[in-house]
Amino acid sequence: MKHGLSKIATGVVAGVLLAMGFLVAEPVAAQEGIAVRAPMVKGSLPADDPNAAVWASAIPATFPMSPQVHWPNRILEATVRDLSVRALHDGTNVAILLEYTDPSEDPDDAAAIEFMVGDKKAHFAHGQPMAQVEGGPVNIWYWKNKDAKGVDMNAKGFGTLSVQPHQDVKAKGAYANGTWKVVFTRPLTTGHPEEDTQITTGGFINIAFAVWDGKKDASGELKEKGSQKAVSSWWYFRAEAPPDYSGYYYAALAVGLALGFQFILIRKLKKGQSA
């Protein structure tokens, strides 16, 4: 008797360990790439105020920038090497804050955010055509210091950049202590899904960035202009959904069901034994 029991014990211990093995083996989703996460806030978004206290509720994501050497005209060195990005949304509008160091404030300082539009993939360099994949357009939100406004644009290939007839993007820059802070705002969704990226909460979309240092060299030429700028690759953006606790409810329900199952099973077994 004792002998048999110890064997059962070994078996059960091994079984439990195996079950725990499943838990440990659950795929821990690989955190590849970086994402800008926009938490939902109550009250109005700080659309005009890059220094508002509420920005502290968004965790900044930092992206490395390259001088644009991918297509002509190239530039081998660009001023901005890192870009810090925060974002917030209120369920209706989204606000994205770009922050970067730039030693001088110049009228031609400029920054842009790029998105894919719709379901088609678009190349990060202005949605240029791809040989084996049918690409879509990109939506570009542009700000230039001296214009003091946001510009809503589209491109599908080099030389196709165009300003949209309907402008949904607002932008505001503030320069202090060698740092630019630029806020872009737009409704999460617009009436133009063919041209504008549409942001639904909870889903990841692609995002890329560009920055121009509008400084002039000794001969009065702009150091960075047009395709000569600092660029990023595609990264991810997500407007966070309101918190969802349904997973806990389902789990509690499952625990209840499992307990009930055990209870009935053991009762049945006991009845069978005493019979």
Partner: peptide
């Protein structure tokens, strides 16, 4: 039951 809950 805990494992079932966790998996769910």
């Amino acid at each position: 039951p805990l494992i079932v809950g966790w998996q769910t």
